[in-house]
Design a protein around this nucleic acid. Structure first.
Length: 462
RNA sequence: GGUACUCUGGCAGAACGGUUAUGCGUGAGCCUGCAAAGCUUAUACAAGGGGGUUCGACUCCCUCGGGUACCUCCA
């Protein structure tokens, strides 16, 4: 499998070893997660599930930044301790992402639980003369790391001249960034240099190396993290270990809304909670996977609606498969094998989910065609269903299970309706159909039989 | 200003040096008691502008222009 690497600007082969180690920069837990966060995490979820489908063991580490000025500000606004803010939003995070059918990461380390490791890490940087304590904190000396700027393709000189940040006189160089900030208020920890809290970037260097070691396979996150976050991580980590930090840097494009980046500061976010309520997890996933992960994705209700149409086709396909009982068989196995190969090929090539989805819809269409022509036999349906389930699993699409009682009830109602129709009691037949519709059950009348599908309830429909 | 990404039909969106996917939408038809869903089929002057390389470019190069992101809050 190849992934575009931001650092080398080339496609790189994902290591073929048995175990793939991935570090994904998670969220700062100070507010509700939005669709932008969802996209990044869905992309990595698909990457992971694909690799696992290929029998790779994946170790996925995703951090929570749980100490940060934003968290502290919010805590001050609400008059409660900072850890209560982070606790609340970590809970909300799992509420949202479990619903989005994201497989839980191997571990979700938190900055506040790794203060000792962070201090040790900083100690070594100071010993090596790469970091230095100053009046307001401990700083990383950018000039000591000649390769600084290699990820974001920035020249140190240009950064200096273009620098619009306030110059902190206590720093040796305006580009130097804090690895430890002195503070007396908010959550603080003792350190050899003074009371305070870690800088933002240091936690990812420390935790990724702690859990994955040096030179792990993929380090990822949103595009907006390239600079300064990932640039600084590389500097700290490689200065610390003298070895290569991550093999591949994978960055997911921004979600925009009306052409503008979705972000808290612009106040144009759509929270996952809100979108889930209105569209449900499957449509969100289809939407987030509808373009290449590296490109910008523009959020709009129209696009979600388009994906609703697609999702209904997927549901139809699934229910046709489980109700298949025709005698006629068309030889389908080669076609399905080709679809399967194409699907994998698309993902192998820099996780091209859009092309992969095209293959999936080919399978859906083929199934629905056979069903429409009353040619979907049990044997074929089993072949197709196996592939359908494999693909759905990788993409994280999920058709909710139903209870036996509910199925029984539906079957009985359909039987009654059939009798009514045979006796041309259409009013009664339509009443039963309406009753089923209220249960989100839609009937599909074929020539020989009627099948049903249980549709996911989508609030925004109609 | 610097850097990166980007500009494909009404919309979304891929691949590819020669045939320009796919989906949505739209039209027609099939099926139906009527619907719905589905299927079949049709539909599109498609490549920001201008140069160049080439027998041939949407695909490579140059140039001009538009958009977005980042340039110490950010997924």
């Amino acid at each position: 499998m190849n992934i575009q690497d931001t650092l080398s600007s080339t496609e790189q082969k994902v290591d073929n070893s048995e175990k793939i180690k991935i570090y994904l920069c998670g969220v700062t837990v100070y507010d509700e997660s939005h669709i932008g966060h969802a996209r990044t995490i869905i992309v990595f979820d698909v990457l992971r599930k694909y690799l696992e489908n290929k029998k790779k063991e994946v170790e996925l580490i995703q951090n929570f930044t749980d100490v940060d000025d934003k968290i502290i500000n919010r805590a001050n606004d609400e008059g409660i301790p900072a850890h209560e803010i982070s606790k609340r939003y970590i809970e909300n995070y799992f509420r949202d992402f479990d619903q989005l059918n994201i497989k839980r990461a191997t571990n979700y380390p938190k900055a506040t639980e790794h203060i000792e490791d962070i201090i040790e890490f900083i100690k070594k940087l100071i010993e090596k003369g790469i970091a230095y304590p100053s009046e307001n904190g401990v700083y990383f000396s950018v000039s000591k790391f000649p390769e600084y700027g290699k990820l974001s393709k920035k020249k140190i000189d240009e950064l200096k001249s273009g620098s619009r940040i306030q110059v902190d006189e206590t720093k040796k160089d305006p580009l130097d960034f804090a690895v430890w900030k002195f503070s007396d208020v908010g959550p603080t920890w003792e350190s050899p240099w003074g009371k305070g809290r870690p800088g933002w970037h240091i936690e990812c260097s420390v935790m990724s190396m702690k859990y994955l070691g040096g030179n792990f396979d993929i380090h990822g996150g949103g595009r907006d993290l390239i600079f300064p976050h990932h640039e600084n991580e590389i500097a700290q980590s490689e200065a610390h270990s003298d070895g290569k930090f991550a093999k591949i840097w994978m960055h997911v494009g921004m979600v925009t809304i009306a052409g503008e980046k979705m972000s808290k500061s612009l106040g144009n976010t759509k929270s996952i909670k809100y979108v889930l309520e209105n569209w449900g997890p499957n449509i969100i996933r289809l939407f987030c996977l509808s373009g290449h992960y590296s490109k910008v994705l523009d959020y709009s209700e129209e696009m979600l609606k388009e994906n609703l149409t697609k999702w209904r086709q997927v549901e139809t396909c699934y229910f046709e498969l489980i109700h298949a009982n025709s005698d006629q068989q068309e030889n389908i196995s080669e076609k399905i094998r080709n679809i399967s190969t194409e699907f994998d090929k698309s993902l192998e090539d820099d996780l091209n989910t859009h092309l992969a989805l095209s293959s999936f819809f080919e399978l859906v269409k083929e199934t629905n065609r056979l069903a429409a022509e009353e040619k979907l036999g049990i044997e074929n349906s089993l072949i197709i269903k196996k592939e359908f389930e494999r693909i759905a699993q990788i993409l994280g699409l999920n058709i909710p299970e139903m209870s036996q009682e509910e199925k029984q009830k539906i079957d009985n109602l359909i039987l009654n309706r059939k009798k009514c129709r045979e006796q041309k009691q259409f009013e009664e037949a339509d009443r039963i159909r309406d009753q089923l519709n209220e249960m989100n059950v839609e009937l599909i009348d074929h020539k020989q039989k009627t099948i049903w599908m249980k549709k996911e309830k989508i609030k925004s429909e109609k």
